[in-house]
Computed example of a mutant assay.
Amino acid sequence: MIDTADHDGIAVLTLRHGPVNALDLELLTALPEALAKAAGARGIVLTGSGSSFSAGVDLKRIIDGGPTYVASFLPALHQATLALYGHPRPVVAALNGHALAGGCVLAAACDLRLMCGGTIGLTELAAGVPFPTACLEVMRHAVGPALDTMVLAAGRLTPEQAASIGLVHETVEPGLLLTAALRRTEALCSTPPEVYALSKRQLHRPVLERIAAAAPSEDPEVARIWSAERTARMLSAYLTSLRRS
C-alpha cells in the first residue's frame, strides 16, 4: 500500500494503491504509520505509483459505506493530513501525475512540491462535498488568496499554472522527478534538524490554531453533509459523469 525505500537516509514513500492511488480508510491509516516508521530518516519524499500521485478520495467507498464509513474516514483524512503537515523533518512531494481533491491536499501538506505532469486541483465542490477544516487550512497555507478560486471553481491546473500560484515549486521532466525531489530534500536537510523543526512549528502555528478553533463546530457539519443520502446520489452522478468524459 505504501512502499518505503531508503536513499542515503532520505525515506521515499510511494503510494501504491489501485490504479490512481485513491484515498480510502486503509491508505489514510497507513500513511501516518509509514511516517512513524520513517521517523529516523533525515527527510521524506512522498510520491505515487503509476500515472497518478493520487486522484483523490475513493468516492465509491463513501457511497457504499455510508455514514458508518464516513465516521471513520474523515478523522483518518484529518490525521493523515496533519501527520504530513506536522512532520518535523523536510517533506517533499514528488507529484508523478494527477493530484486531485484529497491528493492535492496531501501534496499541499508537504514542505515543497515538484510536479512532472498531470493536473492538480480541488474538485470537491464539483462532486458536491465540502472541505474538512484541516484540509482547507493546510491548502490556505500553501496558496493563500488563490484558495478561493481553487475551491469555488473546482478546476484543475497544469503544473505550470500551479507553479504560477506557488502550489508547485518546480516542474520537471518525468524521468528526472525522483532525482530532483531527492536533491531538493537534501538541500533542506542541510539545516540543523532542531532548527528546521522549530521553524516549521513557528510557520504552522497559525494554521493549527485556526484548525483547533474551527474544527469542533465546522467538522460535524462537514460529516453530516458527507453522510447524507442526497450526497450519495450526487456522488453517484458525479462518478457517472467522469466515466462518460
Rank of each mutant, 00 (worst) to 15 (best):
G118F: 00
A109I: 10
V91I: 13
E137Y: 08
A107T: 01
C110L: 07
C135L: 11
C110D: 01
R61W: 14
Q79I: 03
G97I: 02
C110R: 08
A109G: 11
L125D: 11
T81D: 03
M115T: 03
A76V: 09
G103K: 05
T81A: 08
Y85A: 00
R61C: 15
L122T: 04
V129A: 10
I62F: 11
M139K: 10
L100Q: 07
G86F: 12
L74T: 13
I120V: 15
L125G: 06
C116F: 07
A83G: 13
V92T: 04
L74H: 13
P90A: 07
Y85T: 02
A126H: 12
L74E: 11
L136N: 02
L106I: 09
T68L: 15
L112W: 04
C116L: 07
L84V: 09
G102M: 00
C116E: 13
C110S: 11
F131M: 11
R61G: 14
L114I: 01
L95F: 04
G102I: 06
A107R: 00
I62Y: 05
G65M: 08
L82R: 15
G128F: 00
A71S: 14
H87D: 06
P88H: 13
V70R: 02
G65I: 13
R113N: 08
V91S: 14
I62P: 06
L77K: 08
C110M: 04
G128Q: 04
A80E: 01
C110N: 08
F131G: 00
Y69K: 07
V92K: 08
L95N: 02
S72M: 13
A83N: 08
H98M: 12
L95A: 08
P88K: 14
A76Q: 05
L82V: 03
A99L: 09
T68N: 12
C135N: 14
G128S: 04
V105P: 00
D111R: 12
M115A: 12
A107N: 06
A80K: 12
